[in-house]
């Protein structure tokens, strides 16, 4: 039971992607110009993570060791095609906004990383929980970055205007350089907090 709880919460602080676990940077930078897009991307990745971890864990004794990476990629790619079709059918606006970054979930290193590090040697239920936990952490991070960039860069949050007409938005935050700098500063703050709590910070 304690194992279950530790797996459930590790993705939310200890291995929070992409800050504590510096993986999956491309979507974290590319789609976080607004909170809505960040959250949509996070939820898509969560869906793929839960089911790829579950499938890989169920098949872990059948897949030969030598072709395991290739098999994982096929499983992940199939799930991504599924996500693409669901988004196109029910969330057309979002799928237009995310564009090529949806098919690029295939090469998101978080998913392959969790498959190799966790699902390949743990039972099915626990692996699905791990996918859920890491996915939730990723969704949280992307929504956070998206919120900061959208509120300061455009003056809105989830499309709702927040600031008055006197506020001049930092337009550079919604452009490419803003993404890098915003993510870098959040990473620095998290390191500072981790150090303050006396943890060993990954360099």
């Amino acid at each position: 039971m304690s194992r279950f709880l530790s797996v459930l919460v590790h993705g939310i602080w200890k291995d929070l992607p992409p800050f504590r676990l510096v993986l999956g940077l491309c979507p974290a930078l590319a789609v976080t110009a607004s909170a809505n897009n960040g959250m949509g991307m996070g939820l898509s990745v969560t869906f793929v993570l839960i089911f790829s971890n579950l499938t890989i864990s169920l098949l872990r004794n059948i897949i030969p060791d030598k072709v395991r990476i290739a098999s994982y990629i096929v499983i992940i790619a199939t799930l991504v095609v599924l996500v693409e079709m669901i988004l196109q059918a029910y969330f057309f606006g979002l799928s237009q906004q995310l564009g090529i970054y949806i098919p690029l979930i295939v090469v998101n290193c978080i998913i392959l990383g969790r498959a190799e590090a966790f699902a390949a040697r743990n039972p099915a239920f626990l692996s699905a929980v791990d996918g859920f936990s890491v996915g939730l952490g990723f969704t949280f991070s992307l929504t956070l970055v998206g919120s900061i960039r959208e509120i300061l860069g455009a003056g809105t949050w989830f499309g709702i205007p927040l600031t008055g007409p006197d506020f001049e938005p930092f337009a550079f935050l919604v452009k490419a350089p803003g993404a890098f700098i915003c993510l870098g500063l959040i990473l620095g703050l998290m390191n500072a907090y981790g150090r303050w709590r006396g943890e060993n910070v990954i360099q």
Binding site: P177, G178, A179, F180, I181, L183, G184, L185, L187, G188, N191
Partner: peptide, 8 residues
């Protein structure tokens, strides 16, 4: 962290 800011 500093690498990302530099990239920015």
């Amino acid at each position: 962290a500093i690498a990302l800011v530099t990239a920015g």
